[in-house]
Write a protein that binds this DNA or RNA. Structure first.
Lengths: 247, 247
DNA sequence: CGCATTTTTGATCAAGTTCAATATCAGTGG
DNA sequence: CCACTGATATTGAACTTGATCAAAAATGCG
């Protein structure tokens, strides 16, 4: 069941029973991917769309001389690339950072859903727009923020995204990334990530241990990181309506 | 006439006369925006989609303490944000960097076009996907590349995008950006931009004077910047087919 | 010509990198 | 349960890229 995915979309708009059923059915082909193995690689022809059911993954690009930039993180409920199949080949790769369970959604299924379920289509558009907004925010993060702000900003973002799909527990959530992965995502060296993490811990802004992240005072971390959640567009009131009536 | 826009889409797929006509008609409301004035601002409710007919603009985000990051550049033929109107408010602003002439395309018009012109819809998707790919590449640029590589990479990208709409003249094109704007886009100080530009000029990799950019040896600049054009997805052969027959 | 913007230069400074070594941790097999 | 191994985290010291500050020169435009 694409449980988390439906939960995510329902942040934007309430779905009908039939909408939800269509989404359940869509996630046909299941696949398990081992930690550190590519889900799809640069140069591949993208046939279908991948939906993360469980585990963490990331999008990355490798320069010719080996430097690697992580471009996005995927958590449960994330759709890797709606409509990629329009392109001839992938311009980047996606790799599993933990063991990942995913669903492969075919182009045909997606197009059928677009025809029959207007609300789902609109929710998918919302999801796409938010994904792009996140990408833009990463650009700001890398371009303008200091090391400490970058890390804090990432923690705020990931925490809110996980909370959106019900994967937080109070002020705590899973956070299985290594310091090298954080470094590759934030354009910093792993050494500096390590020192900056210590600084965040010393300041009481985060706890991070054994793959679990705690943000004791979200407001404080948000202020320290110049984090503004507006780009996640979580403000939509559509989710309050009942959608089981007529469209 | 959204001349450049049509030209851009036809890089991806050949359009029929009727497709082109629909695009011409779509670009209804025209507007002129003075240099340095916002086309749309963070917090605004986005009613329609903006299409740049002429001039350069950029997307930017301002942090609370004043730091500004330019997130994308827009050149003639660029569509600012397909489907933004799904969101309640803008999470960033768009400002004219030169005098800009633009067309405002309403939500209704876009939706009508999606229904009646499958080829156009697909071409718009391609455009959207490429825009996002560019955003990802900027993340890589800011995260991994040195000052010289960043500048060179931007020059390569902008040059190819302009060439795609016929706005280059041999190895030369317009380039009306100031060094401060380059600095805000590349996450560097204007002073360092200045010195890096000199380095690029000394190396014979670029000429830049009076708002005109020359790239005497594209290959050399590409190598120096680790630029790989695959993310622009210019490889589609669809553009070779005749589209005036049936879909 | 005169004013505002943009570019250029010099000098000092700081954030983050690099390199290299050590410590810790999570599994794994015996 | 423990010893072993590879991966991950931590520390120290020297170094570099690019930032900052401040002033001067060049450009462009009304």
């Amino acid at each position: 069941m694409p449980h988390y995915f439906i939960r995510k979309l329902e942040q934007f708009t309430k779905l009908s029973r039939s909408d939800r059923q269509a989404l359940e059915n869509a996630a046909g082909q299941r696949r398990t991917v081992a930690k550190h193995s590519d889900i799809i690689s640069e140069g591949d022809d993208p046939h279908h769309v991948n939906l993360i059911l469980d585990g963490w993954a990331c999008r990355y690009k490798q320069l010719d001389d080996g430097r690697r930039q992580i471009i996005a993180f995927f958590v449960p409920g994330d759709l890797c690339d709606s409509h990629v199949y329009i392109l001839r080949e992938m311009d980047h790769s996606i790799v599993a950072l933990t063991p990942v369970r995913l669903a492969e959604i075919s182009r045909a299924t997606l197009e059928r859903m677009a025809d029959d379920h207007g609300r789902v289509t609109k929710a998918l558009w919302w999801d796409t727009l938010v994904t792009v907004a996140v990408q833009r925010e990463w650009t700001v993060n890398l371009g303008q923020r200091t090391a400490l702000e970058r890390l804090g900003h990432l923690f705020c973002e990931v925490f809110l995204r996980l909370r959106g799909v019900g994967l937080t527990d109070g002020a705590t959530c899973d956070f299985p990334l290594t310091q090298v992965e954080l470094a590759d995502a934030l354009g910093l060296s792993n050494v500096h990530i390590n020192r900056t993490l210590q600084e965040l811990r010393r300041a009481g802004l985060i706890g991070l241990k054994g793959g679990r992240l705690t943000i004791p005072d979200f407001d404080a971390l948000q202020r320290a990181s110049l984090f503004n959640p507006n780009y996640l567009h979580l403000d939509h009131e559509g989710r309050l309506f009942d959608a089981d009536g007529p469209v």
